[in-house]
């Protein structure tokens, strides 16, 4: 499919440059398509950097996806066209993989699909938390519900399909896997992801908090296993109440 869509970024430019195909979206938007998730995340970071510096034309929304970044709502079609012409020549620095400063989300690995995931991974059930908590994740993009982040970082051999029979109700805080992604349900909703655990201490979305969403694109995340006897209600350790998320 990629070949006939004319959007294949293969071999467009050398390393470091945005190997980007830029597609028009309506009259005043652009969709930038990249070859890999890493390039997409790097371009998104570069767009935010340029916006902070004031060198990006004003645009209402910068919405990353799995392999794309949508730039929607330029002031004019000309502004969109000018950026479309310029962007493929950008020198985009690659992302650094550092886990320093990652947000920690405590997880009780007790999800109803833990055994299925262990079977899909070909490991013992108690290996799943160890493997999952060893990875450093990054919020690739958001969607589905306010505050729901699609987190990448799990090695490809641990990617799992969605459940064949989606649940009509997944509780808030459920930690699930689907394809290359890990996600934490910000609130109760239907869902088809393989549930491996629960994040009982983390508030993913709070409209009265700034920022309302704990997970924003680009945020680095690590999951920290909770011992089962620590999963009782109340603060996990001495301190002022449950925090929305903790940074080391």
């Amino acid at each position: 499919m990629a070949g006939e869509r004319g959007a294949s970024p293969e071999g467009r430019a050398g390393r470091g440059q945005a190997r980007a195909a830029v597609l028009p979206v309506g009259r005043d938007g652009l969709l930038v398509e990249l070859g890999t998730a890493e390039e997409t995340e790097a371009l998104h970071a570069e767009l935010l950097r340029r916006r902070a510096l004031g060198t990006l034309p004003p645009v209402a929304e910068i919405v990353p996806g799995a392999r794309t970044v949508l730039l929607d709502g330029f002031p004019s079609a000309d502004a969109a066209r000018a950026l479309a012409a310029e962007l493929p020549g950008w020198n985009v620095p690659p992302l650094t993989g550092s886990a320093a400063g990652a947000l920690e989300i405590p997880v009780r690995y007790d999800g109803p699909d833990l055994a299925d995931v262990a079977a899909l991974w070909g490991v013992a059930e108690d290996e799943v938390p160890r493997i999952h908590a060893a990875a450093t994740f990054r919020v690739a993009f958001c969607g589905f519900a306010p505050g729901f982040g699609y987190l990448t970082g799990l090695d490809e051999r641990y990617h799992v399909p969605r459940r064949a029979d989606p649940r009509t109700r997944v509780p808030a805080g459920a930690v699930g896997l689907a394809g290359p992604y890990t996600g934490v349900y910000p609130r109760s909703s239907p869902g088809g992801w393989q549930l491996i655990g629960t994040a009982p201490e983390t508030v993913l979305w709070d409209a009265d908090r700034t920022p309302a969403a704990l997970l924003t694109p680009g945020t680095r995340v690590r999951f920290v296993p909770l011992e089962s006897d620590e999963a009782q209600p109340g603060p996990r350790r001495a301190g002022p109440g449950p925090a929305p998320g903790r940074r080391p």
């Binding site: 969709l31 794309t68 949508l70």
Partner: peptide
């Protein structure tokens, strides 16, 4: 034009 699944992307 073909089979295939689109990876999630921003919707205007």
């Amino acid at each position: 034009a073909g089979e295939g699944e689109l990876a999630s992307e921003g919707m205007p």
